[in-house]
Design a protein around this nucleic acid. Structure first.
Length: 483
RNA sequence: GCCUCGGUAGCUCAAUGGUAGAGCAGUUGACUCUUAAUCAAUUGGUUGUAGGUUCGAGUCCUACCCGGGGUACCA
């Protein structure tokens, strides 16, 4: 970033030299006949092609020189020969730098070493780079630069680019899967007067003309349910949520969620939907249902098998496995002391169900590597779901855990306006969280029974693409501004 | 927020408290099939910032900045 850097000064001098020679170093247009990869795939001896790309390597040897050009599709070698180009053009090519973008026209041939290449007859400078690219062999390792200047990461590290191309494919397959099932994609407000649908601290923003505060949304839920009331029976949104929380390997303050609602469905319909959708995406994008995660040395650290049907297990059974068969027969005080004994984080003001949930989150969720539907959660944990008829202390809910993380919760959605108001009021606990009256009025107009699900797309990408850090599936993860 | 590790040339990394170095990139030269090209010469530094200890600090101490890991907040 240092403007006085001598490498930058040299490149500025080269830029001036090009202009002096009457060459526009930022030509307006160059239309390649094919991409680098297409040129290789459709190879024919002596065929004339034109391609464009960034100079990734440059080897000069007397009266000939070799360069590799890279575009989004891949890279191809070009060969510049003094005899073919002429003295001036050869010299211009020779003084181009790594990182410059050029367009080249020539004929396809194969070198003695067997690499399909282009023998250049002419070239155009499309963009002179004034800063040097990262080192060619080690690539870019500095995590801070990788995240802050992601474009350098994408130029230097092909595997990083591959992750983001696959993320795009994942979202594309998600959309087409849902469209095929008759779901309608919508967009709902990101700035909301009352942020609802989840428990999280919101970000605050200010509207000047209206003279009031808005909150950045923390969930999509309450607006999508209004649309169920409005008769859009299958509806989904893919969009950003904003939560004012700490950052970690699994948390970015803004993250992407899918939420989908299906009228006349329930949490079991959602189970089928989640399982089918994730399997569809995995097969389309990765070509397999068996996902391997590897460490830096390339050793497989875990294998996730997505082959249906996924395990279904009630929440309480998992807790009994870990904390003892008699866990739910203990007194609340005994549960608290036993949880502390086990090493769970318990706060003095935690309610009884939070003590059990601490066991789940600390000791059980991280072990759920293989896809698992955790069902029958205690009703206190989920105020927007309906009670289970067979056990009214629980709700018709699942949390789909994969890779040790909650990836997709889903409910049989509460559509009884009176019960919904009660549980939201209880949840609000006085003045701390305002009630979304407009949402409750909408329910009073009648919402069809429905199944609803949310899916953290960033975490889904981590699971499918073998990434252990959420920052490695978000192009521009949140960073503190440099002072 | 707390704990902990780290920040040295454009990039990747060295350097017992004792003259800040290498590879790559760059510059100049040689070379008409190279591909981590090769060979020769050569440029490049406020060691994250500000203080302190010391005859002497990249190295030890303090504070701060930024980042990684962990932890906390996250019905």
């Amino acid at each position: 970033m240092d403007e006085t850097n001598s490498l930058i000064a040299q490149r500025r001098t080269k830029l001036a030299d090009l202009k002096e020679q009457g060459i526009n170093p930022y030509a307006n247009k160059f239309t390649p006949s094919e991409t680098c990869q297409e040129a290789l795939d459709n190879y024919a001896e002596d065929k004339e092609v034109s391609i464009a790309g960034r100079i990734m390597s440059h080897r000069v040897m007397g009266k000939s020189q070799f360069l590799h050009l890279k575009d989004q599709s891949g890279r191809i070698q070009i060969y510049g020969q003094k005899q073919a180009l002429g003295d001036d053009s050869f010299a211009t090519l020779k003084h181009l730098d790594l990182g410059d973008i050029i367009g080249a026209t020539g004929t396809l041939f194969t070198t003695r070493m067997g690499e399909k290449s282009i023998k250049v007859s002419s070239f155009v400078v499309l963009s002179k780079a004034l800063r040097p690219p990262p080192e060619k062999f080690h690539g870019l390792e500095d995590t801070e630069i990788r995240y802050r200047q992601r474009y350098l990461d994408l130029i230097a590290n092909d595997d990083v680019k591959s992750v983001f191309l696959k993320r795009s494919a994942i979202i594309k397959e998600m959309r087409s899967f849902l469209h095929d099932r008759g779901f309608v994609e919508v967009e709902t407000p990101m700035m909301q007067a009352i942020p609802g649908g989840a428990a999280a601290q919101p970000f605050v923003t200010q509207h000047n003309a209206l003279g009031c505060q808005f909150y950045m949304r923390i969930a999509l839920e309450l607006y999508l349910k209004r649309l169920l009331v409005g008769g859009i029976d299958r509806v989904f949104e893919i969009g950003r949520n904003f939560r004012n929380e700490g950052l970690s390997r699994r948390h970015n303050p803004e993250f992407t969620m899918l939420e989908a609602y299906q009228a006349f469905g329930d949490y079991e319909s959602m189970m089928e939907l989640v399982q089918s959708m994730i399997c569809h995406i995995a097969e389309k994008v990765t070509g397999t249902l068996v996902i391997e995660h590897k460490n830096d040395d390339g050793e497989v650290t875990k294998t996730i098998d997505l082959t249906p049907d996924w395990r279904r297990v009630p929440y309480k059974d998992l807790i009994r496995e870990k904390a003892g068969a008699d866990w739910f027969e203990l007194s609340p005080a005994d549960r608290r002391s036993k949880a502390l004994e086990l090493g769970a984080e318990i706060h003095d003001d935690d309610e009884d169900f939070e003590v059990s949930n601490a066991i789940f989150e600390k000791f059980i969720e991280p072990t759920l590597i293989q896809p698992t539907f955790v069902t029958h959660l205690p009703k206190e944990l989920v105020p927007l779901a309906k009670l289970s008829p067979d056990d009214p202390t629980t709700v018709e809910v699942f949390e789909c855990c994969i890779n040790g993380q909650e990836i997709a919760p889903a409910y049989t959605e509460q559509n009884d306006p009176i019960q919904q108001r009660e549980s939201l009021e209880q949840q609000a606990g006085g003045e701390q969280q305002k009630l979304d009256e407009d949402f409750l009025v909408a329910l009073e107009h009648g919402m069809p029974p429905a199944g609803g699900m949310g899916l953290g797309i960033d975490r889904l990408c981590m699971m499918l693409l073998g990434q252990e850090n959420i920052r490695d599936v978000i192009l521009f993860p949140q960073m503190k501004p440099k002072a």
